[in-house]
Design a protein around this nucleic acid. Structure first.
Lengths: 259, 259
DNA sequence: ATTGTTTATGCACGTTCTTACCGATTCATG
DNA sequence: CATGAATCGGTAAGAACGTGCATAAACAAT
């Protein structure tokens, strides 16, 4: 390994190693980069703080890409459940629906009532697995390279597969939702995919937890329009809701009672 | 098993083992990880405190909730686990592997050791989800209509996706395995897909529970040849094993001991 | 050029973590 | 109830850790 790296380069190299083998040891890295273990520890601490790895005693581990679902799903499962219930009301027998990646969308699919018959396409394996639990659903997967961060297929192959579909409804996973900026996302390839998916559907539905409201991310998925239905949580501020409604989108509130 | 694991990694490995076989013994784990039983006991205590397992005298049990998988997987879980361990020994870092549908193959993917870096393609969403649990694996899905009976994408679109791959190894799910009839299957579309998958790979591996031995189904996937490796259970009759070996295939026996 | 500021690094220190060993206790089983 | 295995709590050694501080390099402003 090279010896004279900038700290940023070193961290990138650590990230690469982490991606490859899933784990790094502080001592090994210090020897490889010919710096003190203190420096490595500082790097690992920073990377952990930035959410790039999990710091453990002795080194660091790559965080399981599954974290978005197992952890995030667990944290706010109750709230997502309510969003899901509201989303289900927009589905009708016989519809063809494309379901984008995201833990909220996974909750929606899990919450589908038995007996509903749909054709459901998705690029996220976990959603496909959940959909297969329901007897009435015809499942179609969009293939391609799975992005660990998103947990779903995105990229050229996935976009090509998408072109076989003209769904009645596209259920998009949101990263940021803002009346002016529209629907925005963090990961470029993911956004590119969502954009195509949204464009091909007759209607678009976004179920959005309150923490995503008024968030603006660097890449634009779509502007809000009357083609869109937004499902907000019961506690979403009225001011924001009316602001969103002014864009022409349909606003649904998740029912606060039960869970 | 690797010897020099971080404590967190060890606990993750225990969790994986717990997910698959449902139970672990303190003594076995101590031997497998080459640490004292005290250390294992401390791990199990912590995991139990964190609600990740149930501590019992002698080891620990998986929580009932941790077994969300299909009925078929559960039936012969222990035996599949042993087949999986043998199959893992055929995989090497950097390989590109296509993994066909099947509960045995799902067990294989779940049993992959942490740190192994592979490119893994599959047509079965549940396998993709399992593969994403492993940090070092690049996952590619084959899209298409999901056959409910098979639990994976088969049909025209899936076969088209397959043409982008030239895997080093194809891990096939078997329905019937017989020295004369070769590898056979019940579902026509599924067989057609498997046939293409097998033809495109440099080598083919089949992990086969004993109940599939000498079974002959209506559709032929492939004849046995020296391109094939067959993994049999420890209790498979020797007569059948030698019969299979005469076709030129490599025969591996799943080790009955250890876990 | 010089001065001050920021950043990266290494070192020293006390602290925390992990582990193995030991003794006392509890448990499963005949 | 007797016995051996499994368990728990405590302890000690050694590794890993974080913090504070000093040094050095990079950079901006004067």
């Amino acid at each position: 390994m090279a010896s004279d790296l900038l700290s940023r380069e070193r961290q990138d190299a650590i990230r690469a190693e982490l991606r490859q083998s899933g784990r790094v040891l502080a001592g090994d890295l210090a020897r490889a980069f010919k710096v003190s273990e203190d420096t490595i520890r500082r790097d690992l601490r920073e990377m952990a703080a930035a959410g790039l790895c999990e710091r453990v005693y002795g080194g660091a581990l790559a965080l399981p890409a599954e974290q978005p679902f197992s952890v995030r799903t667990g944290i706010s499962r109750g709230r997502k459940q309510m969003l899901a219930a509201a989303a289900v009301s927009c589905l009708k027998d016989g519809m063809t629906v494309f379901v984008d990646a995201g833990s909220t969308n996974l909750a929606i699919v899990q919450a589908l009532p038995p007996g509903l018959s749909l054709t459901l396409a998705t690029n996220m394996p976990a959603i496909a697995v959940a959909a297969l639990e329901h007897a009435g659903i015809e499942v179609i997967t969009i293939g391609g390279r799975i992005d660990r961060h998103v947990g779903a297929a995105i990229g050229a192959q996935a976009e090509r597969d998408l072109e076989m579909l003209r769904p009645d409804l596209c259920i998009l996973g949101a990263c940021g939702l803002d009346a002016r900026a529209g629907l925005t996302g963090l990961v470029y390839d993911d956004v590119a995919f969502k954009k195509i998916a949204a464009a091909r559907a007759a209607a678009v539905l976004v179920a959005c937890t309150s923490d995503k409201l008024e968030a603006v991310h660097p890449f634009v998925i779509a502007n809000l329009s009357d083609r869109m239905t937004l499902i907000l949580e019961a506690d979403a501020p009225d001011a924001i809701a009316t602001g969103l409604k002014d864009t022409g989108a349909t606003i649904l509130r998740a029912d606060p009672v039960d869970g």
